[in-house]
């Protein structure tokens, strides 16, 4: 579980996160949604410690994450996996080297154990026979899958995903979404996904927080979101024709029953 209390963050006097208090549950896919520029990525980067918060608290289970020193932060980060928007794979390393890096640096496993673990993680994301390829030789979907494999190789307790579907076609997006959801449930990870993809919201949104102008605007599940009585949220959710159609179908179904 990850919890924030009265989180504030500003850049050059401009408030980007304004009093965010929220709890992200373990074993669930927690989604942060909102328009571009609403503060989603800043919130995610504050949660993993890439940005220093101005005030407030961040708890990882019972640990006050926001008060950890450099050494303690390095330690807890070994329990964190993160999937970046562009994958953030190391360009000069092969797929295998990218996934193996945390094992090389932080474990005393033998070469065979590391190879087996890397193969297991790559199999888990359906990427066999890609070990020797470089990131430049991979498609967008493959890059995301390697990023997922790298994120889970150390058995993380917390998984962060920054717009995992950006730049992917709808079918590949569903594959990535389902993969993240399966892994979350399988290993009981606290997963936080930053997205503005409504497909993901309706597919895997077990707990959703809508952020608007840096403030927590709404909180609920994928079942609540289509009926929420919130103007800004409705404008965001029903901006696409597909979402409008989904609401019509749901409303029609309710009326009939």
């Amino acid at each position: 579980m990850i919890r924030t209390e009265h989180l504030f963050k500003s850049f050059d006097g401009r408030v980007v996160l304004n009093d965010i208090s929220v709890e992200f549950d373990q074993g669930k896919t927690n989604l942060i949604i909102g328009q571009s520029g609403s503060g989603k990525t800043v919130l995610l980067k504050c949660l993993v410690g890439l940005h220093q918060i101005d005030s407030g608290s961040i708890y990882y289970d019972d640990t006050l994450f926001s008060a950890l020193n450099f050494r303690e932060l390095k330690q807890i980060r070994r329990d964190i996996g993160m999937i970046f928007q562009g994958g953030a794979l190391l360009d000069s390393s092969t797929v295998e080297e990218n996934v193996r890096l945390p094992l090389d640096l932080f474990t005393n496993q033998s070469a065979k154990e590391k190879r087996d673990r890397v193969d297991f993680c790559l199999d888990r994301v359906n990427l066999e026979n890609a070990n020797k390829l470089y990131p430049a030789e991979l498609s967008g979907g493959m890059i995301k899958r390697v990023a997922i494999a790298r994120a889970i190789v150390m058995n993380p307790k917390y998984l962060f995903c920054d717009e995992p579907n950006s730049g992917l076609d709808p079918m590949t997006s569903i594959v990535i979404d389902n993969l993240i959801k399966e892994i979350t449930e399988e290993y009981s990870i606290t997963t936080i996904i930053n997205t503005h993809d409504m497909n993901s919201v309706l597919e895997i949104g077990e707990k959703i927080m809508y952020i608007h102008d840096g403030k927590k605007w709404w909180e609920g599940t994928k079942h609540d979101i289509l009926h929420a009585d919130n103007k800004e949220l409705n404008e965001f959710v029903f901006a696409s024709a597909m979402a409008k159609r989904a609401r019509e179908v749901v409303d029609h179904g309710s009326a009939r029953s």
Partner: peptide
């Protein structure tokens, strides 16, 4: 610099790498 703007350095930091 390219590693910085493509978040590769952030990825290393998240892994707990200096």
């Amino acid at each position: 610099g390219t590693m910085r703007i493509t978040e590769q350095i952030d990825a290393l930091e998240i892994m707990g790498v200096n």
